[in-house]
Computed example of a mutant assay.
Amino acid sequence: MEWQQLEYFRVVAKIEHFRKSAELLAISQPALSRSIHKLEEELGVTLFERTGRSVQLNKFGRLFLKRVENGLNEISIGIQEINQLKNPYTGNVSLAFLQTLGITILPEIISNFNKQYPHVEIQLYQNKTLNSIQQLLNREVDLCLISSFEENPNITWHPLMDEELFLYVPANHRFASKSSVVLSELSDDNFIGFKKGLGMRGVINNFCEKAGFTPRIKFEGEDVSTLAGLVSSGLGVTIIPAFHGISSDKIKQISISEPYCHREIGIAWLNEHTLSPSADLFRTFVIELF
């Protein structure tokens, strides 16, 4: 059974006349008759009641037509979707990204990309680093925008930028008027930390370890805005990327002079998986942007 046979059948079922159907399909009437006859032989039933040159669906034909129309419509949609994917300017891109990138970096990327390629649809998945990597390995997303991670032979990670991390303290903190501090000076402070399992938790712990202490985590949160909000309430200090969502009357940003606190942000993709033209376009755009 071939797709062409099913299309021929649908046309004859609608027009109910072989000659007129053949003219519409731009084939000879005998060729059309042979195609329908072969289809009926494969199914083991007749599909039409024939009256002279006119034909009409019988009960088998009416039942079969419903399924054929559904099937052909699905195929047509599939072809349209493939054509969209083939066109990098009208396709889809799925991107997993770190929760902490949703404030500044990601909006900047999406905004700039949309200005140049407004018809590309981008699906966003905010997640932890490990979960984003798993989404990539499961082929649930095309790309990941994440910090550096333990090397995986199946994944390429391309560094994009080095993002400085800052100390944030309540406005009435003893260091609030300073422009920079040495991290070891915070060894006795309460910290507002990221929850265990989030990549930033390990990053901050490593910098504190370099400074000679283990941070005393008083409260935990999952995103930058939550941590900053807790700091502004006077509940502790934190180390996060630059954040501008709270008035400087309540929270102060301070550079850390020693050790230099930062993280690398990059874009990741599967090595042996061919990206769609749209995803490849987005990857190239992001790499060139940085």
Rank of each mutant, 00 (worst) to 15 (best):
S278M: 09
Y89L: 15
Q135W: 10
M161I: 11
I155A: 04
G229W: 01
N127S: 15
S111A: 08
Q116P: 05
E151I: 15
V231R: 00
I254M: 13
T156A: 13
I75F: 10
F166M: 08
G202C: 06
I251P: 02
Y89H: 14
R201S: 15
F207N: 08
G245V: 11
I75P: 10
A228R: 00
K196W: 05
S187G: 08
G197Q: 03
Q116A: 07
I36E: 00
D188S: 15
L281V: 07
I256S: 12
L230Q: 03
R62C: 10
I239N: 10
E41R: 13
V224W: 01
A171Y: 01
R62T: 15
N154D: 09
G229S: 11
L39Q: 03
V181S: 11
E81C: 05
Q116M: 12
S184V: 04
I75M: 08
Q126G: 13
V237W: 01
P118C: 09
P277I: 12
H119G: 06
M1V: 12
V141D: 02
G193N: 03
K128C: 06
A279T: 03
Q80W: 00
A171G: 12
I27D: 03
L183W: 03
I133C: 04
G236P: 00
P215H: 04
P241Q: 06
L130F: 06
P118N: 02
C208M: 09
E222D: 14
F149M: 11
R139Y: 05
A31V: 12
N152G: 05
E2Y: 14
V231E: 02
L98R: 08
I146V: 15
D249M: 12
M200N: 08
I246W: 06
N190F: 14
S33C: 08
L145Q: 00
G234H: 00
L160S: 07
L289R: 15
L235M: 10
R53C: 02
T238N: 11
E288A: 13
T51I: 13
N112I: 07
F290V: 10
N58Q: 07
V55I: 07
P277Y: 14
L160C: 07
E69W: 04
C261G: 14
F97E: 08
I133R: 01
L275M: 13
T274N: 14
P118V: 14
L106P: 01
N271S: 09
I246C: 06
T100Y: 02
I267S: 04
V55S: 03
E185W: 02
Q116H: 06
L198R: 01
I246F: 12
